[in-house]
Nucleic acid binder design. Sequence first.
RNA 1: GCGCCAGUAGCUCAGCUGGAUAGAGCAACUGACUUCUAAUCAGUAGGUCAUAGGUUCGACUCCUAUCUGGCGUACCA
Length: 542
Amino acid sequence: MKSYATPLVLAAVRSLGADVDTVVFEAPRNPEHGDLSTNVAMTLAKQLKKAPRQIAEDIVDALDMDSSIVTEVSIAGPGFINFKFSTGFYGKRLHEVLKIGDSFGRVESGTGKTVNVEYVSANPTGLLHLGHGRNAAVGDTVANILDWNGYDVTREYYFNNAGNQMTMLAKSIHARYMQMEQPDFPMPENGYMGPYIAEIAAEVRQKHGDGFKELSSEHLEVFRSEGEQWCTQRINITMESLGIHHDVLFNEDTLYTEGKIDSVIQRLRDAGYAYDKDGAVWLKLSELGLDDDRVIVKSTGEPTYRLPDIAYHITKLERGFDVVVDIFGPDHIATIPDVMAGCRALGFDDSRIRPLIYQIVALYENGQQVKMSKRTGKSYTLDDLIEELGADVVRFFFIMRGITTPLDFDLDLAREQSDKNPAFYLQYAHARICSVFAKAEVPDVSSVNCDVLQDEHEIALIQQLLRFPEIVERAGRTLEPVTIVEYLREAAASFHRFYHFCPILKAESEDLKQARLALCVMARIVIRNGLSILGISAPNKM
RNA sequence: GCGCCAGUAGCUCAGCUGGAUAGAGCAACUGACUUCUAAUCAGUAGGUCAUAGGUUCGACUCCUAUCUGGCGUACCA
């Protein structure tokens, strides 16, 4: 619609002597306002020094449109110009979409560009929890959205199997190991308390015997590596069950072994943004647009988290990605400006970095928040959720809200195997279409006469489905999974309405039946593609 | 104190680069299964878009201030 109307309106506007390069169209919310609407007349009021309605009239007069395509042009309200398209036009568009087939919705906004999406990135010190779930679902969906926008997408997992946390993991396992013989053996301070630690300890004992009581560095290494293996394996299984696969596993350790950390410090010094004070190395954030300088290397010689984070982002930029997307939880908010400033300090364009920060997840059951116990470490793990609800529902619930909205995960609603559960609404639309095709042949696309589709529900459905590529493109800009979710909800609603009012198999004529079947094919393409962007299955039966 | 995110229907939330009468779902009420799946559909009811100013033809959307809530603010990661 837009591609047809844009050049014509543009020509008409220019013939009035106005200087414009784009005309904005939108689909009016109220169908009485036509199929397409533009506000050019209002935006030009100042430039042309005329009343918006007068300008609108002039534009309409200068407009040269094919009346078999646009049946009605009207002026309404403060100066909107509304267009009504012929039903035949929609039939043609339906034909075009059927020719495109399964790739309908793929757009070119990112063609030729590379993007790195980093998500999950949990360290191998425990099981994944709810926050990781949101991170995983959002990250994977964003990666899918970028893929559909034509980007060359690399999915990356950044993990750290070195440092204090791993030592703490080893000590915690050791303590549980000791407790199998001495129940009062103390846990290390700030140790990991989850029940999985005892599980690992039991495995170590079974595998290596009970001769690891002394906490020598050799023994510690055994506990550490057993713990890492156990956690890594479990994380992989969880990712697998959500259908998530990363292309690159980036180990923080390599930043040290390959000298990247030292090199970044040196480069920051050379650029005049790093200095020594009180035995530590500081980053001059105050000269990079932030308030206070921060330590990047402690007086003990160890780097703070900022330094490897900066070095890691530098490597991503140096690997040549046009866009670097980070999926972070709210606990990372404070560090992001530091990291971006660090990249700026070394001359990189930090607008290439696109941090996405999702808000916290809270679990609700029986109307009450389920609190995690600090003392026992007991809480709902992501595995528990997936096992109970299935991957589709879990993924859907994690992306059904905007990422800046704190997510209340309602367990009771998610458990509901009924119409209350919003995840099923979309899948049901797909299953319904499939059930039609269980009883009818897929029509021959080339010979179907789509012009017979005249009913308002048919036209509304085609209009809705035609918007899909535009939605994918918008999602590529917002990087908000909810953009796709909300659209699919509307598309599914349009389909359900069409299904309710327009009999397909028992249509009045064979022509109409074939045309409606063709419309079902189009609907199935859009819903299936949309669900695949969300990483949710499109069942044939429910 | 400072920073980030939010405040929209009883509840949970959408709302496009600023557009026409602010939309869904749940909960409540009323209807539709002899029918291609009722996990659906149609309808009723429900609103000072936190508050006060400003910008303009036009503000839920942008700006300023205030209030409320969440999170963050280490030579912890």
